[in-house]
Structure formats: structure tokens, C-alpha cells
Design a protein around this nucleic acid. Structure first.
Lengths: 110, 110
DNA sequence: ACTATAGGTCGGAAATTTCCTACCAGTCAA
DNA sequence: TTGACTGGTAGGAAATTTCCGACCTATAGT
């Protein structure tokens, strides 16, 4: 478990899967697969990646397998993000200054 | 620009690069590359991915190129994360026992 | 029992990523 | 100018990802 949450989120398909589970609740694979333009085994593979990252969990109901969201590992992302928050707020604060990204002038060095 | 921020963060090397820029400030490529076990051109490629995602910007200083953090695109990640926050707080409130998830902090290695 | 349904896994093809060693362009310093 | 230094790019090997059709197992219903 904990097979790199960042990598799991790198695919738009997998992010969409999480979103479907977020506002559709626990769902069988077939229902999830309907929403995509790809074959069901491919969706299964994506679900496996999410499961290895701890982002979803499955439960058996008869011959169906319901996948549900496990949002806890997303805390790792949020925690990683935290030290950057200050930084982007600074940038937004003084946008009265130069905004050209491509242009260069000497900024702070240390 | 905006070449998928999630994908850019999928690589541990690139996350570490951002971290180096976060607390080391603007730095030339060589100084960044020293910190890794890989050849400099590889680090250059990673920087290019970060630049395409809008996460870093470069500025020329003599024969050096200084890369600096551009944290703004990380807002996209935070915004994506937001609807999940409610969900994981619910989970944590229920159990209150499983705290071993908090063990893994940063993953910057190599 | 038999058939249909749900969904994993198994190769394999294609595309992408990741890393390397060259090599090239620009810049500084003699 | 000749060098030394910084860092991009080119091309390619290797590994990984992504997708597929084909197959297998398990369950449900008849």
C-alpha cells in the first residue's frame, strides 16, 4: 500500500474516477466504466492503481465489486502543498509590480 | 503552457526540485543538479517539464540560468483537493484510532 | 445442471517517460 | 582569439504506462 499517491493522480482518467466516487458514492466497476471511452479492463487497471495508492477500497456485493473513495491519502498531497501556500499568496499580493514571466530581471538570490 | 500540473508532480525528482527552490530560492541549474544522482541533462529535462507546467520560470544571469519557483499553478491542485477535504475529515472523526497514516512525511530522496 | 453477468488477469502492442552520452551555443576570462 | 564553463538539445536505449482483446473465475438466475 501507499504506492505513490502523486503518481496515481497523474492520470486524468483516475482523477475522474475519484470524482465519480466522490459524488456518486460507492459504485460497481461497470457503472464507472460506462462513463469512459475505453474498454472495461482498462478501467479495472486504473482502479488497481488507485487501490494500490490507498485511494479506493473495494467491497464485494454478490458478483459485483463496489469501489468507494478513500480520501485519507490525499492528506499527503495537502501536507506537501502547505509550505508552498505562503509563496503563492505573496505573489498574488504584489501583482502591482511586474507580471511578465518571460522577462527577466534580477530577483532575490541567496 | 499549463501542461498538466498533476503529471509534473508525479516524479519524485521534480517534487524535490520544487522543494530545493522553495527553501533555496532562485538557483542555477548546476547547483540544483548537484543534489541528484543523475546526469545534468536529465535534470534539465525535468526542469523543462516543470517549466511547461508553469511551476518554474527561468532568468538569465550571465552564462547561468536561474530557475525560480512559480507556485501559482499549485492552486489548481489545492482547488481540486477541496471537495475531498470534507470526506477525509469525516473518516478521521469516526475512527480516531488509525493515526499510523501520518508516519510518512516527505519522500525526498536520491 | 446450464447460461448469463461482473469483473480480474494475462500477454502484447503502442506510446510515453526516463535516463544516458554526445554534441552545440552562448558567455566569461586570459 | 583561445580556451574553460554553463546549460540546451539530439538521438537512442530501457523501462514504464496505457490500452486492448482474449481468457478465467465467481456468482446469480433459471
Amino acid at each position: 500500500m501507499r504506492e505513490d499517491v502523486f503518481a496515481a493522480l497523474a492520470s486524468p482518467v483516475r482523477r475522474q474516477l475519484l470524482h465519480l466516487l466522490l459524488d456518486g458514492g460507492s459504485q460497481p466497476v461497470g457503472r464507472l466504466a460506462e462513463r469512459f471511452d475505453m474498454a472495461r479492463p482498462s478501467v479495472s487497471e486504473h482502479l488497481k492503481v488507485l487501490k494500490d495508492a490507498g485511494l479506493v477500497a473495494e467491497s464485494r456485493h454478490g458478483r459485483e465489486r463496489h469501489y468507494r473513495l478513500e480520501a485519507a491519502p490525499l492528506m499527503e498531497i495537502r501536507d506537501w502543498l502547505t509550505p508552498y501556500e505562503r509563496f503563492w499568496r505573496e505573489r498574488l499580493a504584489d501583482l502591482g509590480t511586474v507580471l511578465d514571466d518571460m522577462e527577466d530581471r534580477d530577483d532575490d538570490n541567496r
